[in-house]
Amino acid sequence: MEIGWIETTIGALFATAILTLWLSRGSGWLEPRFWRNAAWVSALIMTGILVYLTIDSLNQIREGSARVPAYTVINKAIGLKRDYEKHRDIPVIGDEVGFFGRTWSEEEAYALVNKGKLTLQSRNCMDCHTLLGNGAYFAPDLTRAWLDPKWENMVMSMTGKATKEEAMAEWLQHPDRYPTFARRMPNLHLSEEEARALVAFLKWMSAIDTNGFPDRFAGVQ
């Protein structure tokens, strides 16, 4: 079932108003009693709606749902396409292309992305970068990092690696050696395994349907 935001909004405001007025009948709107009622009624109604929407949202963002891909998406080609009806970019998941030269089973893919997420937190990436637009602003947004043209345009030749994932893993282990501008990412002493796991995490994240953020990434057609 699709939840409509206008219906929800009107319902929430209406319910709050009616319940407050009903509970406060007999007192004027300038009296403390009126606003005391309004306070807890609005807190309860809004919390109730939030809980309901949370259950729905969590179902829609479970990995393997239409919005958030399964971890095995790392085996697939990933791209972005312009949806000209909604005027926004949406991720497209293509053919099986493998990842680091092989295909990863469901458990393997989970383990890899999980390791990537742990590594991300342990190195505190979000206190320099944004992910899905949240974090710090000292370094580029990573939402679509896997799809960034710079890996192919610059980093592959800089690192001398033959595939994008290998170039990314090498760059992540020695960012101090391969500067892109005055601000260099510090060497966070990632192991080879951690670096590959991070690349898997980034690839998986790039296939999340973000309602079109960031708009026209790399000039998507």
Binding site: E2, I3, G4, W5, T8, A12, A43, M46, T47, I49, L50, L53, D56, S57, Q60, I61, R67, V68, L132, G133, N134, T143, I208, D209, T210, N211, G212, F213
Partner: peptide, 18 residues
């Protein structure tokens, strides 16, 4: 409380949050 939705525009969550 529902204003929380201004952080749910782009993190993968459904469209009604917009």
């Amino acid at each position: 409380i529902l204003g929380l939705g201004h952080h749910y525009f782009w993190i993968g969550t459904p469209e009604y949050w917009l």
